[in-house]
Write a protein that binds this DNA or RNA. Structure first.
Length: 423
RNA sequence: GGAGGGAUGGCCGAGCGGCCGAAGGCGCCUGUCUUGAAAACAGGUAUAGGGCAACCUAUCGUGGGUUCGAAUCCCACUUCCUCCGCCA
């Protein structure tokens, strides 16, 4: 959520941000008009309240019965006016709030202006694509042949975009989760195990609602929302809190399943396990001072990159263009790993500096060490990494001519002696 | 699922429908004293919104209601605790 004062005082900047995201700017004018109306009403209703308060105090001290009755009557009338003004004000404020909640974050000036993900800029590519003396298979062939992925069973159980991992495949995914969490702990993150279902206000705080309801699963009976990413509970965990500056940055990591309806991506990536309705992810999250956010972003990118490197995967880092930048993001890097079987770069991590956008929605502040006024913290989040795609990359990169898969060195301690997955 | 009891500032904890943004204590900050510290003493110490400002408004778990006026009375909800039942 943007600061209404920013919109008021730097209108052109905010409008330009929307233009760079290919959005209409009319909402900005609407919001400003609402804000003006709101402030005029506040002026009016608050002066009436001040009068009522002071007269009410007098009434308490009055002796003369008749005079008292007259005062009470006139205050009753004033109270009615206040009620109707208050109601009008409330309507305007909730309208204003709702409009503000649908305005996306302002991109960092570094962010390249573009139409979509094709305009993302490759910052660097690390590693050489492995050469194979045979045709590397895609995971949707490899997995079933080895008996470690069962796509039919997924469909039988739950429909399309579901799959079952079994045997060494299930174990390999678990090994990845264990190893990644351990790595992030060594990188200075604190591990969390949050709920996977949250209240509506938590979804709102992280920016998933009200705009992206279509992509979320919701239990109507209990009014729970299933998390589409651990970013949601990790934002919610600090909702309404004030942190001492000395305790920043707060670095968190969490493993959760993620649930997404993928309505907006209908028909995309239907083959294999690139895009399921349920997938596992290890997430990294930071709360930090505004002045450190850029540097924390770089360090989180390095932490995610180290995850790829530890697994021996070829990866590239991209800077998202304004056309691809998510709703709440100020600046986002993607990390993609090369999958030789399906012959594509797979996005395994998206690392974003959200600025104060989420903190404002979630009301998360810090108390500056010098005792000055409370400020909103900045938040950052990044995958470290998304599991199915990392699993795909490992399978496809470590496959051998006979269809077996070698276990990457760092995962061996978690595989119970398995060094190669064979039929 | 049933019964009962709570929710007040950074923390603990008072609070009669008006003099309560809220006693008192702790903590923290500033000052006096001290070579320095501690102690003692004095003062200060919530958040947000509006206003150029003086200042005003709102907030005592959340949302409604009663009233000229609500931390205080009424209703609903959330949440915590205790007990009973059920259960992985």
């Amino acid at each position: 959520m943007l600061d209404i004062k920013l919109i008021r005082e730097q209108t052109e900047l905010v409008k330009y941000a929307l233009v760079s995201r290919h959005m209409e700017t009319g909402i900005i004018d609407e919001v400003i008009a609402l804000d003006e109306k709101r402030r005029a009403l506040i002026l009016d209703v608050e002066s009436k309240k001040a009068e009522r308060n002071s007269v009410s105090k007098e009434i308490g001290r009055m002796k003369d019965k008749a005079e008292k009755e007259a005062m009470i009557a006139s205050m009753r009338a004033l109270g009615d006016q206040i009620d109707s003004l208050d109601e009008e004000l409330k309507g305007i404020e909730s309208n204003l709030y709702f409009q503000l909640a649908t305005i996306p974050n302002i991109p960092n000036p570094d962010v390249p202006v573009g139409i979509d993900d094709k305009d993302n800029v490759v910052i660097r590519t690390v590693g050489e694509k492995k050469s194979f003396d045979f045709d590397p298979k895609p995971h949707w062939d490899l997995g079933p042949e080895l008996g470690i992925i069962d796509f039919e069973a997924g469909v039988k159980l739950s429909g399309s975009r579901f799959y079952v991992l079994e045997g060494a495949g299930a174990r390999l995914q678990r090994a990845l989760i264990f190893w990644m969490l351990d790595l992030h702990i060594r990188q200075g993150y604190r591990e969390f195990y949050p709920p996977w279902m949250v209240r509506e206000e938590v979804m709102f705080a992280s920016g998933q609602l009200p705009k992206f309801e279509d992509n979320l699963y919701h239990d109507a009976e209990e009014d729970f929302w299933w998390v589409p990413t651990a970013e949601v509970p990790l934002t919610g965990i600090m909702m309404g809190e004030v942190v001492d500056e000395a305790n920043l940055p707060l670095n968190m990591t969490a493993y959760t399943a993620c649930f997404r309806r993928e309505k907006m991506s209908a028909g995309r990536d239907v083959r294999g396990m690139k895009r399921g309705h349920q997938f596992d992810k290890v997430e990294m999250y930071k709360y930090c001072l505004p002045e450190n956010a850029e540097q924390e972003l770089d360090s989180m990118v390095a932490d995610a990159a180290a995850t790829c490197e530890g697994l021996g995967l070829i990866y590239r880092v991209l800077l998202q263009s304004t056309g691809d930048l998510s709703f709440g993001s100020h600046k986002t890097y993607d990390i993609e790993v090369w999958a030789p079987g399906c012959q594509e770069w797979l996005e395994v991590s998206s690392i974003s500096n959200i600025g104060q956008f989420q903190a404002r929605r979630a009301n998360i502040k810090y108390r500056p060490a010098d005792g000055s006024a409370l400020q909103f913290v900045n938040t950052l989040n990044g995958s470290g990494l998304g599991l199915p795609r990392t699993l795909i990359a490992v399978m496809e990169n470590y496959q051998q001519a006979d269809g077996s898969i070698v276990i990457p060195e760092v995962l061996k301690p978690f595989m119970g002696g398995i060094e190669v997955i064979r039929k």
